[in-house]
Design a protein around this nucleic acid. Structure first.
Lengths: 336, 336
DNA sequence: GTTCAAATCGGCAACGATTGCATAAAAATT
DNA sequence: AATTTTTATGCAATCGTTGCCGATTTGAAC
């Protein structure tokens, strides 16, 4: 049975009271130098480490923050987490990472687990499956600091950070137009996500600005967000079977972009026939064949911004009522 | 300030004692039906959830397990984590994921944090940078259940699970030989890792079995394990500048495989001139150009096996002294 | 010699939940 | 009516730590 040394053990061994040991370890002014040395030496000897669980219980502060993302296998999120950690560690906080696999049940469980494990705050990017936010609203109303990133929601007023999805989608779509493409299809993500709608708006706006009529029949929603390859392949097959076949596809999500590339390869389509552009933060996107022009989000920076907002909330002495939503711009990488 | 409802709050509101409330909530046989209903209804009303921190403190059991991996952005590890979660959740355990970025300092901090947060056990795949295992040995000797997966060590006796790295490397190397390649270079990982040496042995054995002389000058160690692209590009450039230039490269690590592909592309090498085969669990490896024959590990299964071993350790009533090291076979995917 | 203050240290309580033991009240038995 | 049994509930300790108050000792000042 794993049982680390406690203050009581030290007190017993040294015939002191637990309070004295505690103060000696924290270098309290009321303890004599000899006692301090005695305690500290013995503590080192038995490898004493203060128990954060007991401290959490007493202080309701844990110096750890919870992270909830849909999928770690998604490069965007692992990059954002790296950004979060880079700041959090520096400021003395630990991170506890959980993933939901885009399931709202899992999300509910993970969030509650983190909240009850007394994390000091929560960084969350919403799952595609979630439409009921009351569990988050309850926690937030009870005073748990929460910051949303990337997949944000409007139902809760707090700090948020996301990408300029509108402009990213606009630019990518425009790049296809400038490459002489006229019939640009859209492979879209789950419709309840903020990013889905912003990207759709960017796509439509680019079409409008270039006097290309918007055709709803060129849009396919992949509600499983690329977690299900077959759904994407079916959508692609469907699009390419249209009488008025599209000559380009804009893909509004990372995982769907990958699946679309695979579908085009499996269906043996000529890359010249179909141009593709899409959102992707994959670190190998430049090595993929067929190749993809891609919109890259500033994932690492987004993680950093999010955690800085959260620490502001956590460490503020007075309740904060003025919130900000930061929008980070995106980078368009063209590939001929 | 975030402050969820406690048993005391309920007791006060209902004019009962905390003990009665506790027993009513756990459906104790000694509590009258009316009292139970009263308590349960009120608990639901104020959204009462038992505080796992308090329980951890009392029971020294948290029903959560700690996971320590080098890098989440590495597909192998995110797949293994998914495997771990698939079993852990089913058995009522939570997971706490941390990454070390292959830094042994970070590893030490994360492991200690998890141990003190009273996880019931630890699943760990070692960082490339670690050579001193005393911190783990101390925890293990103190009774903390630990299971190693993938990057295992021999210094601590416990359950372990890894891939058949020898055979994977052997088969991949042999496939290059069968494709008429005679001068096969090796891009290798950090030498203190178990997997590095096993894969090196497989490579050498395949050469020997086919009467190809082993040439040390064809081996390059990338000690940063592909975390540093430049290191890999330099190694590749160096190999291709040899007078007796290799006609194939076997790459013994996931991240290095990707970097090597990028290097070959950046250096504009003719794919026909250099055949490559390597370990990779990337989910887009089949879409990469130049293409790669790859050895895929059973990552998901490995996570499942590891967590099952850990739960055996955790839930065993008596100390376990007979340990097992499971070896999972690998899959070779050939690409012409 | 008396009073007071500083220097050290111990004891108690509390954080939230559980549980063995004791106790109270009500019901059943004699 | 007295006693036992059943039923329901409260008390106190526990986990590890720390804040607060009180106690003791020592020395100095008057």
């Amino acid at each position: 049975m794993y049982k680390p040394a406690t203050i009581k053990d030290i007190a017993l061994a040294l015939k002191l009271s637990p309070s004295t040991v505690s103060r000696a370890l924290r270098d309290g002014y009321e303890i004599s130098t000899e006692t301090k040395k005695l305690v500290m030496d013995y503590a080192k000897q038995v490898n004493y480490k203060s128990n954060p669980i007991a401290l959490s219980l007493k202080n309701r502060r844990s110096y750890s923050i919870g992270i909830v993302v849909p999928k770690l296998a998604n490069s965007f999120f692992s990059q954002a987490i790296a950004g979060i950690e880079s700041i959090a560690y520096e400021r003395g906080y630990h991170t506890i990472i959980t993933q939901t696999h885009d399931s709202s049940e899992r999300e509910l469980i993970n969030v509650n687990h983190l909240a009850q494990r007394s994390v000091d705050g929560l960084l969350i990017s919403m799952s595609a499956g979630t439409s009921d936010y009351t569990f988050l609203k309850t926690l937030h109303d009870d005073g748990l600091p929460i910051v949303f990133f990337d997949r944000i929601i409007s139902e809760i007023e707090t700090f948020k950070v996301t990408s300029d999805n509108f402009r990213g989608a606009y630019n990518a779509t425009e790049s296809l137009i400038k490459a002489e493409r006229k019939k640009i299809a859209l492979l879209s993500n789950a419709p309840q996500l903020s990013i889905t709608n912003e990207r759709l708006a960017g796509y439509m706006s680019a079409l409008a600005d270039h006097n290309i009529p918007f055709k709803p029949e060129l849009i396919r929603n992949c509600v499983k967000g690329g977690n299900d390859y077959q759904e994407v392949e079916d959508a692609v097959k469907d699009l390419l079977a249209l009488a008025d076949k599209p000559d380009a596809i804009f893909i509004s999500s990372d995982r769907i972009s990958i699946s679309c590339i695979r579908a085009l390869k499996n269906l043996n389509f000529d890359p010249k026939e179909i141009a593709i552009a899409g959102f992707s933060n994959s670190d190998v996107v430049d090595l993929l064949q067929p190749s993809l022009s891609y919109v890259k989000q500033k994932s690492f920076e987004m993680g950093q911004v999010a955690v800085e907002m959260l620490l502001r909330l956590i460490e503020s002495k007075y309740p904060i009522t003025e919130f900000e939503t930061r929008i980070l711009d995106t980078e368009l990488h063209l590939i001929k």
